[in-house]
């Protein structure tokens, strides 16, 4: 299990675009694991299309926080609320965040979300069910309102020896999670052998989430 061992791993993920068919299971798993309110997508699936009829191809692109080695969100954060763990995961200290949203503007991958007010998924005027109460409390306890939030590779699950929820949920095994420093880890092998690449390298953030080509 990544995260367990003598040496601190450098956590990363590989997303195989050949395998992804855009079912949104990762999004649902992320939402149910982290209780993110409406409009917040720590895990997200984008859809793209290319080519002229009849040679048109559609492709899904699952995105999340890429836990960049050189995160621009951390660079611009004026308070030091955004910090990097030893394993390379970028996290937010909710007690330091002033909610200026500068990190959101600075992230070239759209991984930052801030909610100004917690909202229910159900329309106004209805009393919250006990599960919604629970979701609200969990969100306020773990992430909070008025502060910037982001994916942290499911910190709590990793602490308990589990993979991130999106990785666990993927029915096509399109997400592979592991230690990028270990040359024998599954993600390292996949990146090496199958032409793994990062999105928009021109931003210079050095993301740690790699993609395998669509074909």
């Amino acid at each position: 299990m990544p995260g367990v061992g003598t040496k601190t791993p450098r956590l990363g993920m590989v997303i195989d675009l050949k395998r992804c068919y855009g079912c949104y299971a990762c999004v649902t798993a992320c939402k149910t694991e982290n209780f993110t309110p409406p409009g917040v997508f720590w895990a997200r699936v984008l859809k793209g299309e290319t080519g002229e009829y009849p040679n048109t191809v559609r492709q899904a692109l699952p995105v999340l926080c890429f836990q960049c080695e050189d995160p621009s969100c951390m660079t611009v954060c004026p308070t030091g609320a955004t910090y990097q763990e030893d394993d390379g995961v970028v996290r937010v200290d909710r007690n330091k965040c002033i909610g200026c949203n500068y990190c959101k503007m600075a992230c070239p991958y759209g991984a930052r979300y801030m909610v100004e007010k917690w909202e229910s998924y159900f329309p106004d005027g209805l009393p919250l069910s006990e599960y919604e109460e629970y979701a609200k409390n969990r969100w306020e306890e773990k992430s909070g309102v008025g502060v910037s939030t982001k994916c942290d590779f499911c910190f709590e699950r990793r602490e308990n020896g589990m993979e991130p929820a999106c990785v666990r949920a993927c029915p096509a095994n399109a997400r592979i999670f592991g230690d990028l420093d270990d040359p024998d880890s599954e993600p390292s092998i996949l990146i090496r052998d199958n032409g793994g690449y990062v999105l928009n390298p021109e931003h210079g953030n050095k993301p740690k989430v790699y993609y395998l080509p669509t074909r």
């Binding site: 949104y24 999004v27 649902t28 939402k31 409406p38 409009g39 997508f41 997200r44 699936v45 984008l46 859809k47 998924y121 159900f122």
Partner: peptide
């Protein structure tokens, strides 16, 4: 509501 939100995506 979760699926509705994803449908917009």
């Amino acid at each position: 509501p979760l699926l509705d939100e994803m449908s917009h995506e």
